[in-house]
C-alpha cells in the first residue's frame, strides 16, 4: 500500500479517491480508519472530502483531533506527501498543516457545479505545463471561502503557494484561491474534486493531471522499478 486515504465518520469521497488512485492510476491504495495508525510504508496520504463528524462546530474542527492526525503531522513533518480535498482541505487548515481557514460561501448557497480553474506556476510539479493552463473540475461545498490574514496572504502569494484559482469566483474566496500548498511543498489542499474527474463518463478528466502531479514522486519511482525489472 502506497497511498493511504483517511476515513473519518462522515467522509464520503474516500472510495472515489481510492478508485482514482488505484484503478485509474494503478498505484496501490487503501482506506485507513481515523482511529488506526498510519500504516508503515505509506508514501502519500489523501485526506478526502465529505462531512467529517457532520461538520459540527466548524468543518474539520473535530476531525483535526482524531488519533490519526498525530501520525499525519509526523508524516508531513518528515516530508511525506499529503493532499486534502474539499473537507480534507478544511481539516488540513484546521490542523495547521496548511495556513488559513475556509468559511461559509459568500453566496450562502452550497455550490455543486463544474468549475473552471486556472493553474498557477507553483513549483516543478504543479504548473500549467504539467497540469494544463485551465481545468474544469467539480466543486461541491458550502464552506469554500478561503480566508487568510493580509500579511500571511502576501507571503503565500510571493512564495508561489497558490496552486489553483477560480475563473468566476463561486464562493468569495480571497484572491480567487481554490487550492494552495505549504511553504515546503509537500502538503497540498484544494476545494475542487480531482477524484471526481477521472473517468470518460465524468464531466471532464481534468482531475488526472492534478492527481498525477501530486503523486509524481511515486509514479516516477514506480516507472523506475518497472524499467529496472
Amino acid at each position: 500500500m502506497k497511498v493511504a486515504i483517511l476515513q473519518f465518520p462522515g467522509s464520503n469521497c474516500d472510495w472515489d479517491a481510492e478508485h482514482a488512485v488505484q484503478d485509474i492510476l494503478g498505484i496501490p491504495a487503501a482506506r485507513v480508519w481515523h482511529k488506526s495508525p498510519l500504516p508503515s510504508g505509506t508514501e502519500a496520504v489523501i485526506v478526502p472530502g465529505g462531512f467529517s463528524f457532520g461538520d459540527y462546530l466548524r468543518c474539520g474542527a473535530i476531525a483535526r483531533f482524531s488519533p490519526i492526525m498525530d501520525d499525519l503531522k509526523s508524516f508531513a513533518d518528515q516530508g511525506g506527501q499529503v493532499l486534502g480535498i474539499c473537507n480534507g482541505f478544511q481539516i488540513l487548515c484546521e490542523s495547521g498543516l496548511l495556513p488559513g481557514a475556509l468559511i461559509r460561501n459568500d453566496c450562502i448557497e452550497f455550490r455543486c457545479i463544474n468549475q473552471r480553474v486556472k493553474v498557477e506556476s507553483s513549483n516543478d510539479r504543479f504548473n500549467p505545463e504539467k497540469c494544463g493552463e485551465q481545468l474544469s473540475l467539480p466543486i461541491a461545498h458550502g464552506e469554500g471561502n478561503y480566508r487568510l490574514k493580509e500579511d500571511a496572504l502576501e507571503k503565500l502569494e510571493s512564495n508561489g503557494q497558490v496552486l489553483l484559482r477560480y475563473i468566476g469566483n463561486p464562493n468569495g474566496s480571497i484572491n480567487d484561491i481554490a487550492g494552495i500548498r505549504n511553504e515546503v511543498g509537500n502538503v497540498y489542499g484544494m476545494m475542487p474534486h480531482p477524484e471526481r474527474a477521472v473517468e470518460p463518463y465524468h464531466p471532464s478528466r481534468d482531475g488526472l493531471p492534478i492527481l498525477k502531479a501530486f503523486l509524481e514522486p511515486i509514479l516516477t519511482r514506480s516507472s523506475v522499478e518497472i524499467s529496472a525489472s
Binding site: 462546530l57 487548515c93 481557514a101 468559511i103 480566508r147 490574514k149
Partner: peptide, 8 residues
C-alpha cells in the same frame, strides 16, 4: 482550537 478557530 476546538471550540473556536483563532484564524477566523
Amino acid at each position: 482550537g476546538l471550540l473556536s478557530n483563532p484564524v477566523i
